[in-house]
Nucleic acid binder design. Structure first.
Length: 111
DNA sequence: AGCTTGACTTTGA
DNA sequence: GTCAAAGCCAAGC
């Protein structure tokens, strides 16, 4: 079952992110096996615009910074969505990011 | 068929 | 501690 594109694989992982949790592009990339192609995850998110089931707002860079907020409809939409889930965001940065960090590899196990 | 882009990560100085 | 450059792979044109 590999008919799906790389993006869809990323979306699958992103959709697995629990509410109130966040993860990093690199973590997803590793979970898919593409260790250092974290850029591809970001690109997959770009394609995720047509995927309402993909909570891209839960995916941030390894610093916990909302790097992709600008790609949302509004620059504040990403931050607002995170706060709506109980995640505190300060200056585009997730508070307690380390505690809210969700590792997909723990769920997928490297598949 | 090939070159450019891209919401990142890591390593080096 | 911060700043700069290289690396990576897949989709788009």
């Amino acid at each position: 079952m590999k008919d799906i594109s790389f993006f869809e694989q990323v979306w699958e992982v992103v959709k697995l992110i629990p509410c109130g949790r966040v993860t990093s592009y690199g973590a997803i990339a590793r979970a898919l096996g593409s260790a250092q192609s974290s850029r591809m995850v970001g690109w997959a998110m770009n394609a995720a615009h047509g995927q309402p089931d993909v909570p891209a707002h839960r995916v941030v860079n390894r610093n916990g910074l909302l790097t992709g907020k600008m790609h949302f409809g509004a620059p504040d939409e990403m931050q607002r969505r995170l706060q709506a889930e109980g995640i505190k965001v300060k200056k585009d940065q997730i508070v307690h990011f380390e505690k809210l960090f969700w590792d997909p590899i723990k769920e997928i196990g490297g598949e």
